[in-house]
């Protein structure tokens, strides 16, 4: 077994108070389900992208990986601890560079593939 028993045991322990209604193991498995299904969809969809569009695909997917900005906003916006807020705000800044840079540069590239009719 790859996962040590101690971890498996701990996964099945009682939920902490903030996770009422769902024990940690179920939560983990729920997210794992989403992860694996989305991976599968990703493989199916992306194998159909032609070679000539691979650079915009890379920069576009790069922009989407900036989704971590959502996590950054939630942890920074709580203003709970000094360090937490600082890390969170820094994460918002970096993730937004990633998001804006990625989408804008992808648009710029794709426009070149579709020259305006003169």
């Amino acid at each position: 077994m790859l996962i040590p028993t101690s971890i498996l045991n701990s996964l099945t322990l009682v939920a902490s108070t903030e996770m009422i209604g769902e024990d940690p193991a179920s939560k983990f498995i729920r997210l794992l389900t989403v992860f694996l299904l989305a991976m599968w969809v990703g493989f199916e969809v992306i194998t159909k992208v032609p070679q000539r569009l691979h650079t915009p695909l890379t920069s576009g997917s790069n922009a989407i990986s900036g989704i971590t900005v959502v996590g950054a906003l939630v942890v920074a916006g709580g203003l709970t601890t000094g360090f937490g807020t600082l890390f969170g705000l820094l994460a918002v800044l970096l993730a937004m560079i990633n998001v804006a840079g990625g989408f804008v540069v992808t648009h710029r590239m794709l426009e070149m593939f579709n020259p305006k009719k003169k």
């Binding site: 694996l36 989305a38 990703g42 493989f43 992306i46 890379t58 997917s61 990986s65 989704i67 971590t68």
Partner: peptide, 30 residues
């Protein structure tokens, strides 16, 4: 970078991070 976002999604229990992260992870692997 996609897988890191997906892992962050597991941290804060957020499915949009997990989905977007794994899509990018798959794209990069292909």
């Amino acid at each position: 970078s996609g897988l890191a976002a997906a892992a962050a999604g597991f941290v804060i229990d957020n499915s949009v991070l997990v989905i977007a992260g794994s899509l990018v992870g798959a794209s990069g692997l292909i």
